[in-house]
Computed example of a mutant assay.
Amino acid sequence: MSEEKLSVFPMGEKNDAYARYFVGQSYLKMLTTEGVVIGNVTFEPGCRNNWHIHHQGGQILLVTGGRGYYQEWGKPARELNAGDVVNIPPEVKHWHGAAPDSWFAHLAVEVPAAGASNEWLEPVTDAEYGSLK
């Protein structure tokens, strides 16, 4: 699957502002920053974000295309495909990203909450990522 067919939403520019929190190349197009913040995040094959925690509000992922993974700390990774929804409660350490052989795109919805913040942690190691099915 090519990046052109991932989503009806625009792919956006290279995600340089957050590049230090990703292994590989991602792209970001903010769809709205009013009320509920929603970004279209696109991952090249093999790209994934670091482990991170959303404090207070949490996050919802709406998968729009490709194949990827979501994993919570201490749990097995879950394969994601177009149409999947992931509800990430606040205070849960997790990561998400593309499969090694597929582009991947999701809408990242920030759940509004007073004092909400995001804490970026260590990268997902090549060994952790390489063990995925």
Results as ranks from 00 to 15, higher is better:
3 E>F: 10
3 E>W: 11
4 E>T: 12
6 L>F: 04
6 L>Q: 03
7 S>W: 02
7 S>D: 06
8 V>K: 14
10 P>C: 04
13 E>S: 15
14 K>E: 15
14 K>T: 13
14 K>A: 14
17 A>L: 14
17 A>S: 15
18 Y>H: 14
19 A>K: 15
19 A>N: 10
20 R>F: 10
21 Y>C: 11
22 F>S: 07
23 V>S: 14
24 G>L: 04
24 G>W: 03
25 Q>K: 12
26 S>C: 11
27 Y>T: 03
28 L>A: 12
28 L>N: 15
29 K>P: 00
29 K>Y: 07
29 K>E: 14
30 M>L: 13
30 M>Y: 06
32 T>Y: 08
32 T>R: 11
33 T>R: 14
33 T>C: 13
33 T>Y: 08
34 E>P: 02
35 G>N: 15
37 V>S: 13
37 V>C: 10
37 V>A: 12
39 G>T: 13
42 T>D: 10
42 T>Q: 04
43 F>I: 01
45 P>H: 09
46 G>F: 11
46 G>Q: 07
46 G>A: 10
47 C>H: 04
48 R>K: 11
50 N>F: 12
52 H>N: 08
52 H>S: 03
52 H>Q: 10
52 H>E: 03
53 I>H: 00
54 H>M: 05
55 H>F: 05
55 H>A: 09
56 Q>E: 15
57 G>F: 02
58 G>D: 02
59 Q>E: 05
60 I>K: 00
61 L>W: 02
61 L>C: 02
62 L>T: 09
63 V>S: 01
64 T>N: 05
65 G>P: 01
65 G>D: 01
66 G>M: 03
66 G>Y: 00
69 Y>T: 01
70 Y>A: 05
70 Y>N: 03
73 W>V: 02
76 P>G: 08
77 A>I: 05
78 R>S: 08
80 L>C: 05
81 N>F: 14
82 A>L: 10
82 A>C: 08
84 D>Q: 08
85 V>G: 00
85 V>E: 02
85 V>I: 15
86 V>W: 01
87 N>P: 05
87 N>R: 14
87 N>Q: 14
88 I>E: 02
89 P>V: 08
90 P>N: 13
93 K>R: 15
93 K>A: 10
93 K>W: 04
94 H>Y: 01
97 G>C: 07
97 G>A: 10
98 A>I: 09
100 P>M: 14
101 D>R: 08
101 D>K: 12
101 D>Q: 14
101 D>C: 12
102 S>Y: 07
103 W>L: 00
104 F>A: 05
104 F>G: 00
105 A>T: 13
106 H>D: 01
106 H>S: 03
106 H>A: 03
109 V>K: 01
110 E>F: 11
111 V>L: 13
113 A>P: 04
113 A>C: 08
114 A>N: 15
114 A>W: 09
115 G>A: 13
115 G>W: 10
115 G>L: 11
119 E>D: 12
123 P>Y: 04
125 T>Q: 08
126 D>L: 10
126 D>Q: 12
127 A>F: 09
127 A>H: 10
129 Y>Q: 06
129 Y>F: 14
130 G>M: 10
131 S>V: 06
132 L>M: 15
